[in-house]
Amino acid sequence: MEILQNALKALVAREAIYFALLAIGLNIQFGYAGLLNFGQVGFSLLGAYGIAITVTTWGGSYWLGLGVGLAAAVVLALLLGLPTLRLRADYLAIATIAAAEMLRLGFRTPSATEITGGTQGLQGFSGEFYELSPFPLDKKYHPFGILFTGQELWLLTVGWTLVALLVLAVWLWGRSPWGRVLKAIREDEDAARALGKNVYWYKMQALIVGGVIGALGGAVQATATRSVDPDTYLPIVTFYAYAALILGGTARPLGPVIGASLLFALLSVTDSVLRDLTTGDNPVISSDILDSQAIAATRFVLVGAGLIALMAFRPQGIFGSRTEVSIDAK
């Protein structure tokens, strides 16, 4: 029962929102337009630090900070896109992963400490957001027997509403002529060009929109944890988001959301199960084989193996279309 509750909580947890938002952004870029953005975490860093720096360092408002973060994401997308979108897809991948690391390292350097807080990061900037909460912040709620504080509940409500709105937008885009052009660019950009589509500009739009959604993810995550720390913006975050996207199915509006939720539920379930198996008086798995410190790593191994199995038996992900995947791209 506890395992189930943990799993349920993980399904809707703030991490699920964070990765769902990152993956929705990637879905527009990679799933629809075929752009390989390996630096989504860089956009999320800007969304988070936009708020943190504006509020804590400069004493501005939370909402101004949110705007600053999103604007910074637009600028980053332009900077990355202008030189690389005319080139082959791999150049964007290289540029984005490098840019994300440059941002992380730049924000954590000692010389930037006055503004970014350096390795300590910044705290205490999300008060304005929680002031709006209709739920008393410290009150305890027990939907489905899962414990949430009012503060958590407010964040989850806003976060999931945001996710729902974006899923709706992606659904509308996917069925519109705009989405059709993106898919055509993914399939063969020369064909799209030969039919009069300004491929460069469409790719730029996809990069900007996806990046801004990634920045929103970063903003939600920073608001939830009430702190930013440069070393949480590692490249691996982008790859978790890709794992969520591929698990759910690319170029499907709900794919990244279900993928992100399931990924975190799976990680939570394997964690609980492994902990149950290794603790107690007479553990099923003795500590010689698996001690408690190795559990965190082991669950990633298990979930990774599960993802590989998924790719082998259901390459289209949960929502993807089998026929679409089985057509080889020519």
Binding site: S176, P177, W178, R180, V181, K183, A184, R186, E187, D188, A191, A192, L195, G196, K197, E324, I327, D328, A329, K330
Partner: peptide, 21 residues
């Protein structure tokens, strides 16, 4: 464009589409 339907291939090519913005 293999992973698009034949009809979508055709509709894509029409110019000056409002919905492409």
């Amino acid at each position: 464009l293999s992973k698009m339907t034949v009809l979508d291939n055709m509709k894509l090519a029409a110019t000056r589409q409002q919905g492409e913005r």
